[in-house]
Amino acid sequence: MKRLKKYINQNEWYLMGIILIYSIIVTTQNSGFFTLENFFDVLKGSSGMIILAMGILVVLLSGGIDLSFTAIAMFGGYSAARLMMATKIDNLAFAFVVSAVIGILLGAVNALIIHKFHLPTMIATLGTSSLFSGIMTTFIGTKTITVGMMPKSLRAFGGFRLFEMVNDAGSTYGLTVFIIPVVIVVVVTWFILYKTMLGRGVIALGNSEEAAKRSGFNLFWIRMFIYTYVGLLAGIMGVIYVAEVNSVYAVALYGTELTYIAAVVIGGAKLTGGEGKILGTLLGVIIVRLLNSTLVFLGLTSSWNGFFTGAVLLFSVGLTSYMSRLRSRRNLTFTD
């Protein structure tokens, strides 16, 4: 039990409870929910969000925030697709490389601005978010990529399943290939955060910038890693997003960044830095995606997504904040 406690904290038990209760309620309302097919659907829909969420977790752990990752994801994904169309290089690896390089470069811009000018990360990335999105739409284009124009390799990637099954109605379903990059990203993020000094440096920075500096960490390279890593993940997510949806609108993801951050925050990461875990983040994403994609089973349209996501977010931050308020009053520190 003590071992378990080390790996799963209170917040994560709450989240699992919420997921369980929600699942039971939906299952009693609609038997279509508790099926492998639906599970695979939710998984596919969550892939992009999980990848970005890992990046957001790294930024939040460092005590920063990044609002530019959706702009970077679109910059990477859209530019890669357009480049493939223009050069006729119809190769998936090419798409990933182009998008990833763009992501890393833009992330480096964020890191430089934040480190050199000591800007609050939120304001800085709010600025670069507009800047990146504006540069892409002004210089690369805004033309919507329709299904007919989409490079074949991307379309194939979007529809590829690792294995397939047939449901009662006779249509096939299966496990999306997206699961591969998702698993790789989660494992790599875990490894970096917990097994490397770089990851410890990220968390040290989030705990106390001054102490991290005095410990001898090179904060410039740590920040460089943080923001280029988010950029890289955004680049990967961009390609997955483009492959997943059939027609790509140039500013599609722009403006949705706060939803992604909300998922990570529901997962227990603190904006003050140093606190947050991979398991919690995954659970946070699952809750948000479940609410977004399974309300139909309750007979509600997707118009209700925001309502429920907002309610869960308010409930979860309200509860944890109230707990720490009571603690701070009890300790007579009055910090919360």
């Binding site: 939120m122 706060l258 909300a262 997504n305 429920f308 996501t309 907002g310 308010l314 931050v317 904040s321």
Partner: peptide, 18 residues
């Protein structure tokens, strides 16, 4: 409830929009 303003209003932004 001592919710940090950025989180509280992120939540209500989503909620009011919802």
């Amino acid at each position: 409830f001592s919710v940090p303003a950025i989180l509280a209003t992120l939540g209500t932004m989503t909620f009011y929009n919802g």
